[in-house]
């Protein structure tokens, strides 16, 4: 059993300042996750050389891998820090912010782009209003059960981080938004706006820019079938263009 836990953390004081590395040594306890280590640093903000430092800044909420807040690079892999257990990680544990999003401070990044992407593809059901309209449409369990898998996307950003096509010189919308279009189009009330959502994915930065690197599905902490979803959207688009041509 190790006596201590060593962490190496990439820090950055503000959006534009130069990143630097800091190391921390904490007393070992079994069954810790990365977040309990960061909490320990808050209680005793001292680096490995004994120097007092500002506690490391990071984002987290639920600590049970459903909120998607605590994404970071842990030993080079994009994942949720709440479910990253120290006992299963090689030391020193290296923590870095996700690199595909604007830095805020330390491990905090700005993922607004992902929420904006959901707006771009109109990832919502266009209901008449919240007033009483009686029961909704029936929905076969067979379809519902795969749609449910897609509805578990936490917008955590791990797929975006792992995708080579998401980079500063590309407008690629990324796997998340594409999978959400597939979800919305599969819901009984969502079909009405299916074409509009597909049209959004035909624009620059849309599904055509997927380079088929296939990293996204491996990176997804919820094992959402992103590759199948991208393929399904491609098929929906082909169907839409053929159907569109026939209708002319």
């Amino acid at each position: 059993m190790p006596n201590d836990i060593r962490l190496k953390i990439k820090r950055q004081d503000s959006q534009s300042s130069t990143p630097y590395w800091q190391e921390f040594v904490l007393p070992y306890r079994p069954s810790l996750n990365v977040i309990s280590c960061l909490m320990e640093i808050q209680r005793n903000p001292v680096d490995a050389t004994g120097k007092k430092v500002a506690p490391v800044v990071w984002e987290c909420n639920c600590l049970e891998e459903v909120c998607g807040a605590c994404s970071m690079l842990i030993n080079g892999k994009a994942r949720q820090s709440c479910s990253a257990l120290i006992d299963r990680l090689e030391q020193p544990v290296v923590l870095e912010p996700l690199s595909k999003f604007p830095a805020v401070r330390d491990l905090v990044i700005d993922r607004t782009v992902m929420f904006n992407n959901l707006k771009r593809v109109k990832a919502w059901i266009n209901i008449d209003g919240t007033h009483d309209q009686g029961p909704g449409p029936r929905f076969p369990e067979k379809t519902r059960s795969w749609a449910y898998e897609l509805s578990r996307c936490m917008t955590c950003g791990c797929c975006m981080e792992s995708c080579p096509q998401v980079n500063p010189s590309s407008k690629f919308i990324g796997p998340t938004a594409i999978a959400q279009v597939r979800l919305m189009n599969a819901l009984p009330n969502g079909e009405n706006d299916a074409e509009e959502r597909l049209a959004a994915l035909m624009e620059p930065g849309g599904v055509a820019e997927c380079g088929n690197a296939q990293n996204c599905e491996r990176a997804c902490p919820k094992e959402i079938p992103l590759l199948t979803s991208i393929a399904a959207i491609n098929r929906q688009m082909v169907a839409k263009s053929i159907f569109g041509a026939l209708n002319k």
Binding site: W124, I127, P135, R138, P140, E141, S151, M184, G190
Partner: peptide
Amino acid sequence: RLIYMLDRMGVTFNRTPEGFID
């Protein structure tokens, strides 16, 4: 009424064999 509203909004509620909310 609130469950029906959520259903219309697209919550993926589990279903009965006939497709009603389980």
